[in-house]
């Protein structure tokens, strides 16, 4: 579904990603893990053209995606959930979700129902300003906003970053639930163990290059990976 071929990316003249390749197949959950500063978030952003791509090619469903306009990518079925500042705090929960349907309002009602089904706490708070919600609920709003766009592939940048421990598993379970509705998921995650446990496949990055690539289970069992990147 998604093919990233030898990409080099960064900010301005500073290259952070030095030639990375990755594949995501339809229906998978794929995780990218690695230490702080390994470039994993930059890599994810490069797929959504949020950083400067210097070389390489990204294709989505056999169409070239490099530097595509945002609305184009959304129409093709890609959706990105940033790590921080991923909601509109002064808008209500419902308005946040509605804006997810900015590009296409078709079947907005159905999509909204689906999101409220997936995240029941949001239904009770739909008229509340999103900025007043707890961290976990904000994350649900961010997921919901992305899901309204009816994505085929959802890009999640550290979905559990900054969350209270009680919410981490909850949010990752929600990711799993989203995947079960037929949405393919590519995520960058700090909680490497938990992420790999639920992933079909995983990539381990360090210093902007790929160190390992395998199934989630195999990476968990790989002692080298465990020692170097999963904290023993």
């Amino acid at each position: 579904m998604l093919e990233v071929n030898n990409i080099r990316a960064g900010y301005g003249e500073i290259e952070i990603i030095h030639g990375l390749s990755l594949t995501v197949n339809k229906g998978e959950i794929v995780s990218i893990v690695g230490p702080n500063g390994s470039g994993k978030s930059t890599f994810l952003k490069s797929i959504f053209s949020l950083v400067d791509i210097m070389d390489g090619q990204i294709t989505f469903q056999n169409e070239i995606l490099n530097n595509a306009a945002t609305d184009e990518m959304i129409k093709k079925g890609l959706s990105f959930v940033p790590q921080t500042d991923n909601i509109f705090p002064s808008l209500t929960v419902h308005e946040n979700l509605e804006l997810g349907g900015y590009i296409s309002r078709k079947k907005l009602k159905d999509r909204l129902d689906l999101v409220y089904d997936l995240f029941p706490p949001l239904l009770a708070k739909k008229k509340k300003r999103a900025g007043t919600l707890s961290g976990g609920q904000r994350q649900m709003v961010a997921f919901g906003r992305a899901l309204i766009m009816k994505p085929k592939l959802l890009l999640l940048d550290e979905p559990t970053a900054g969350l209270a421990p009680m919410y981490i598993q909850l949010i990752l379970d929600k990711v799993k639930a989203i995947n079960e509705t037929g949405v393919t998921i590519l995520m960058v995650e700090q909680n490497a163990k938990k992420a790999l446990e639920m992933s079909d496949r995983g990539y381990v990055l360090a210093a902007g290059v790929k160190k390992y690539e395998d199934s989630g289970r195999a990476l968990l069992e790989n002692e080298e990976v465990a020692q170097l990147f999963l904290g023993g």
Partner: peptide, 23 residues
Amino acid sequence: TKLGKAMRAMSDNTALAKITGIN
């Protein structure tokens, strides 16, 4: 209105508005 909400959204968080596909 859609445009009005988009205005408030952009005022809240311009980067996110772009990612959301707001024109």
